[in-house]
């Protein structure tokens, strides 16, 4: 049985202007120790997916349907108190902006100890020791001294390390990292990614890595879920997707990655902007921006998820374009682009 199995997840927000379906039929599963990357632009539903799994969306205005099975238990049917026990203990989360994710008025130690004692019935001394050990584990020098300091005395990268230490304090089965490196500078990004990769083996938890950076995906993920406009565009193993991308949106993302062969050329970008989820375009949501758009793309229903024929592994995509043209286009793209791996 998979550690985490998400089936047909659908989250709808009630807003003043009407209903917004932020994610529409997302399914994936994740084994112990695996890393799943969820990729997409802003507004593609990546973060809503993670918050839906955590049950952190406002109960009044957001409605979630489908199933989120953690070890076979459906989290969407749990009450607030049961869900609270799961948050931080079985599923932990780290966020995009480490500068604002720690409470400014408490010491780092206080916040780490709180994380431990919320879920473990241990003494203050034991919790302090655990907090200290966690700081050391995420590579923060002088952990004893650092425990007594406040978040503003830490740099961005160090704060993200603290967030990771806090998330892993209770040995969660699943870690959701919502763009953990986006707000950091490039060298720090690399250090944090390296840390996550190392901790994945040390702590043996599964990771959902949310990012808009295919480079990060190539770096540490096993599986990839490409999302567009709240729907799955393409999904499969990381090697398969990078070797045989089959969705025009995935091509667009790959095309906008810096590569060695492009040299000093300007970066390519996907023209247009992500769709309004309040009034999404009919049919395929990528159709208004897709260079290969056909009439069928603009009509309902949207293209269904189909297995990629020439791929032996699980690899699905949702696009009406015929398989032969896709093979051709993908080959051309890969030839033009030497993707940094």
């Amino acid at each position: 049985m998979a550690l985490l199995e998400v089936r047909d997840l659908r989250t709808t927000f009630r807003t003043d202007d009407g209903l917004v379906t932020a994610i529409d039929g997302v399914s994936f599963s994740l084994e112990k120790g695996q890393v799943l990357g969820i990729v997409g632009e802003s507004g593609s539903g990546k973060s809503v997916t993670s918050l839906s799994i955590m049950g952190l969306l406002p109960r009044g205005s957001a409605a979630t349907s489908g199933q989120v099975l953690l070890d076979g238990r459906d989290l969407l049917t749990l009450g607030e108190e049961e869900m609270r026990k799961i948050r931080g203990q079985e599923i932990a989360m780290i966020f995009q902006d480490p500068m604002t994710s720690l409470n400014p008025v408490y010491t780092v130690g206080w916040q780490l100890i709180e994380a431990v004692r919320l879920h473990q019935d241990v003494s203050q001394t034991a919790a302090t020791k655990r907090a200290r050990d966690m700081l050391a584990a995420v590579g923060i020098p002088n952990p004893d001294e650092r425990l007594r300091q406040y978040p503003h005395e830490f740099s961005g990268g160090m704060r993200q390390r603290v967030m990771i230490a806090m998330a892993l304090a209770n040995d969660p089965k699943l870690l959701i990292a919502d763009e953990p490196t986006t707000a950091l500078d490039v060298t720090t990004q690399a250090q944090i990614l390296e840390l996550i990769r190392r901790l994945r083996t040390d702590f043996d938890s599964a990771i959902v890595m949310i990012t808009h950076d295919l480079g990060v995906v190539a770096e540490i993920c096993d599986d990839v879920l490409v999302m567009y406009g709240g729907r799955v565009a393409e999904q499969g193993g990381v090697d398969d997707i990078f070797a045989r991308p089959r969705h025009p949106y995935t091509w667009g993302l790959m095309g906008s990655m810096p590569s060695r062969s492009h040299g000093m050329d300007r970066l390519q970008s996907i023209p247009g902007s992500p769709p309004s989820l309040l009034r999404p375009p009919p049919g395929c949501r990528f159709s208004p921006r897709c260079p290969y758009v056909m009439d069928i793309c603009r009509g309902d229903p949207p293209p269904p998820l189909r297995q990629v024929e020439d791929d032996p592994h699980f690899h699905v995509e949702a696009c009406h374009l015929d398989a032969a043209s896709k093979r051709e286009e993908a080959a051309r793209l890969l030839a033009a682009q030497e993707i940094v791996r």
């Binding site: 952190l56 609270r84 948050r87 931080g88 932990a92 989360m93 604002t100």
Partner: peptide, 15 residues
């Protein structure tokens, strides 16, 4: 609406 409130909830702190 601050991020650290979301962090606190993600930690499993009661409401």
């Amino acid at each position: 609406g601050e991020d650290y409130i979301r962090t606190a909830r993600a930690k499993g702190a009661p409401g």
